[in-house]
Amino acid sequence: MSIEESSSKGFLGRLEALRGVAALWVAVGHSMIWLVIGSEPAIWSKPLWAVQGIQAHIARATISVFSGAAAVDIFFVLSGFVLARSIFRSNLSVQGYLRFAVRRLFRIIPAFWFSLLVVLFYLLVIYPGHEDFPGASEWFTRWYSDPLSIREWIENATFVSPWLNPNAWTLKVELLASALLPFIVWFLGSRKAVRSIIALLCTVALAWIYRDAPSDLGHYVYMFVVGAILASHGSQLRSAVTESGLFVVGCLLLILAASVCFPLIHPLAADFLVVTGTAGLVWALGFGHSSKILRIFDAQWCRYLGRVSYSFYLLHFIVLYGTGHLVLRILPSAVVIRWPLVIMSFVCFLSVLIAICLAQLSYSWVEKPFTLLGRRFQLKDSTLARTEI
């Protein structure tokens, strides 16, 4: 997520906006699963047509459009594209690799640690204690059931456990993939298609091996490779890919189809659909596709959300949990059980607003200063620092 945007046709701004939209998907997706809906305790674990009840169908359709699982795949493909594009333009060396690694740490760690401080403040100052509320889903009830310990804090701060901030598991994947990406770029070389095919096949095979481990790097590394291949060969596809808006619509439909037809727990087939659609979307945004549909990524609200998206992504869960916990303590159980969709929709709106306000503070006082500090370790040609988002 950039601090300064490129002036070339809003290129980086549009990709940053895409990341903001994906972060919003995660927030809405989480906001629609924290209550039990009728006989459906876990609507995310079934395809759309398998859930029962009107409220459950509406909620499941909502998280099909705002799919947190699809958003994570988008994050990873987008990171692979942006970082690989930068590395391709840089001189790879041991010193350059170390600077790249330090810069990524400055980019990711400070805002994450700030989010943990917010969680710590909530648990120590505001949180009244764990309680099994009638109507709360298992997904919601499982969090913060054990007393906070120093060991737990250290394990979360070092990515051993994501218990305090469940979104942290994606940061661990991001850091490990960032460490591998320069080597992947080196292997891809000077836009040689054969090497790209080999890298893709090997990492897809790795995803198959890790298909039952949806929080491990092996399950996702091919997504970063797809992004890197786009960075390497994307400009060559201009003559082969249509400029029609139908192309963009088709990419979006692939992502939607995966969220409608599969459980939202990263089954391999669903991820393949999402990554295919995302690759087309990132290519369209990254190489100046003329579709009018993409103009939404030029909207001011979308650009703003893109700027604060990383902090927003980190902070929304604890805001959602705190808001939901308060609502469950205030409302009668009968109301919660009868109208879960209405309650979740209200809490979704409120939690998103609060999280955006906190994200602005985190962006201005933590994320931006430390990102700029990390750029002091930039490579000599400074390309990476100008293009990283």
Rank of each mutant, 00 (worst) to 15 (best):
Ala258Glu: 04
Ala61Ser: 12
Glu174Lys: 01
Trp365Asn: 08
Leu372Phe: 09
Leu384Asp: 13
Glu16Ser: 14
Val260Ala: 10
Val241Ser: 01
Arg195Gln: 12
Pro182Met: 13
Arg211Cys: 07
Gln360Asn: 13
Ala231Cys: 02
Leu379His: 01
Ile58Lys: 10
Gly189Val: 11
Lys172Pro: 00
Arg85Glu: 05
Leu326Trp: 15
Leu83Ala: 08
Glu5Gln: 10
Arg103Ser: 13
Ile54Gly: 08
Phe121Lys: 07
Thr170Leu: 05
Trp49Gly: 04
Val342Asp: 00
Ile265Leu: 10
Phe187Val: 07
His57Arg: 14
Phe287Ala: 06
Ser161Gln: 11
Gly374Arg: 01
Phe133Gln: 04
Ala84Ser: 14
Pro267Phe: 08
Leu326Arg: 03
Arg103Ile: 06
Pro147Thr: 12
Gly135Val: 04
Glu152Lys: 13
His325Gln: 14
Ser39Leu: 14
Tyr122Ser: 09
Val221Ala: 03
Asp132Ile: 05
Leu15Ile: 13
Gln95Glu: 11
Ser291Thr: 08
Val185Lys: 05
Ala56His: 02
Gly135Tyr: 01
Ser244Leu: 06
Leu305Gln: 15
His266Met: 02
Leu181His: 01
Thr62Asn: 01
Ser259Thr: 09
Ala240Tyr: 12
Gly189Thr: 10
Pro214Met: 03
Val249Gly: 11
Ala231Asn: 00
Trp113Met: 06
Leu353Phe: 15
Ala136Asp: 01
Met223Asn: 11
Leu358Thr: 00
Leu18Trp: 09
Leu180Ile: 07
Leu148Pro: 09
Trp163Pro: 00
Val226Glu: 01
Trp153Ala: 06
Phe66Glu: 00
Ser333Leu: 02
Gly277Cys: 08
Thr242Phe: 08
Ile354Phe: 13
Ala258Met: 08
Leu15Tyr: 03
Ala136His: 00
Ala157His: 04
Val194Lys: 15
Gly20Tyr: 07
Asp271Gly: 15
Val204Trp: 05
Ala279Arg: 06
Val36Arg: 12
Ile54Glu: 10
Phe312Trp: 10
Ser145Ala: 15
Leu305Glu: 12
Pro263Thr: 11
Ser291Val: 07
Phe76Val: 09
Ala231Thr: 00
Leu200Cys: 06
Phe183Arg: 04
Arg191Lys: 15
Trp186His: 11
Phe106Cys: 09
Ile3His: 03
Trp365Tyr: 14
Cys251Ala: 07
Val260His: 06
Glu155Ser: 12
Leu379Thr: 03
Tyr363Ser: 03
Ala111Ile: 10
Leu268Val: 12
Ile63Gly: 02
Ser149Leu: 02
Ala27Gly: 07
His130Gly: 07
Phe106Ala: 03
Thr387Leu: 15
Gly250Met: 08
Gln95Asp: 11
Val72Lys: 08
Gly227Thr: 03
His266Tyr: 15
Leu35Gln: 05
Ala213Asn: 08
Arg338Phe: 08
Arg19Ala: 00
Leu237Arg: 12
Ala111Asp: 09
Leu98Ile: 09
Phe75Glu: 01
Ala27Asp: 07
Trp143Ser: 11
Leu320Phe: 07
Ala177Ser: 15
